[in-house]
């Protein structure tokens, strides 16, 4: 390895792998990311210029309905999009200052799992049904660290104990279908944190679980994040999940950020009509007996995103300007951004 001048990269360490160090605590820099899917019907623009950052020890929630581009964003960061049909025509995903999108795949793959790890929504289908769970966790150490079989297996037991799987030693040889849903998600988490990644992306980690288990998994994630000072990206459509865990949240709609704010501000006083609609559609006990509020209409077809603000056909406040001009994401209060022409009115409302 020759001396490198790239920011954030230190020359190869003893194991021959590159080590990454965050610059000023900055882990991720997503810059003007665009993702499109080339389908038979045309080009679906899934992500249209998304930018955000993630620091060490920070938890960022990405909120939005299905099809808003949250998962695609995560998959683009991980580099697990199927390309084709997906294409990234524009943008950068910088990890410790190094752009992952231009990195050759034989180097990028060492980032996956070791530096940036991900857990998925459905742990049953995300774990391989024909291999024991311990083997699947141990595979991380075997492949990334070149560890021998018995040491890797011991690490797997240690991790299963860390995520509170009872009788880990006995169950290390069990198969995914022999665990309950919550336990399976714990195994996914154990596998993701195996190599002490700096960034953990959780894509709807609790959606497939029942409510009591959801809370347990979320508190486990929070605990691990604080213990290891990981940067956590939490992707969800469940606003209740976000409130306890996330520091900052961004709201996505039709592949764009429409609002960013800390969670407290977002809840108390949303700055975008879409966020307001999302919050109003949460069922509340003190409004028992009334019709549930819902945002009228459907998210736009990504093949034909309406001109102007993509939310305008569903927005109660939409005026003529909304159908023509695309509102930019602008600072509307300190530390708060909104992409609405009438953000100030929304906040004051």
């Amino acid at each position: 390895m020759t001396t490198t001048t790239q920011p954030g990269i230190r020359p190869a360490n003893a194991t021959g792998k590159i080590t990454y160090t965050p610059v000023d605590g900055r882990l991720l820099d997503v810059e003007d990311l665009h993702v499109e899917f080339h389908t038979d019907d045309g080009i679906a623009k899934a992500i249209n210029g998304v930018s955000f950052t993630l620091d060490q020890g920070e938890s960022l929630a990405i909120l939005g309905e299905s099809g808003s581009g949250k998962s695609v964003t995560a998959q683009a960061i991980m580099g697990i999009l199927d390309m084709p049909p997906a294409k990234i025509p524009h943008g950068a995903v910088k990890y410790c200052g190094v752009d992952l999108l231009t990195m050759p795949d034989d180097r990028r793959r060492w980032v996956r799992g070791a530096e940036i790890a991900m857990i998925f929504q459905d742990a049953l289908s995300s774990l391989n049904p024909v291999f024991p769970v311990g083997w699947q966790i141990a595979e991380m150490f075997r492949q990334h660290r070149g560890m021998n079989k018995s040491d890797a297996q011991a690490q797997a037991v240690r991790l299963m104990e860390r995520v509170a799987i009872p009788a880990a030693k006995e169950r290390v040889k069990a198969y995914p279908h022999q665990f309950s849903g919550g336990m399976r998600q714990r195994i996914m988490i154990a596998m993701a944190i195996a190599l002490d990644p700096a960034v953990l992306i959780a894509d709807e980690p609790t959606t497939a679980l029942d409510v009591t288990v959801q809370a347990q998994i979320m508190s486990l994630l929070q605990e691990l994040q604080q213990e290891r000072q990981m940067g956590l990206i939490l992707i969800t459509h469940d606003l209740g999940v976000v409130a306890d865990v996330a520091d900052r949240s961004v709201v996505m709609y039709a592949g764009r950020l429409v609002e960013t704010a800390n969670v407290y501000d977002l809840y108390r006083n949303p700055a975008h009509p879409y966020t307001r609609g999302l919050l109003e559609s949460i069922p509340r006990l003190d409004q028992k007996g009334q019709t549930l509020a819902a945002i009228g209409g459907l998210p736009p077809n990504l093949l034909r995103i309406p001109p102007g603000c993509a939310f305008n056909p569903r927005c109660r406040m939409a005026k003529d300007v909304c159908r023509v001009d695309l509102p930019a994401l602008r600072e509307v209060a300190s530390g708060r951004h909104s992409a609405c022409h009438f953000a100030e009115e929304v906040i004051d409302a």
């Binding site: 980032v111 996956r112 799992g113 070791a114 991900m118 995300s126 595979e139 991380m140 492949q143």
Partner: peptide, 12 residues
């Protein structure tokens, strides 16, 4: 399948 996506995400 999802588990192949997981395998890729594991850095394999």
């Amino acid at each position: 399948a999802d588990y192949v996506r997981t395998a890729i995400a594991k850095g394999l």
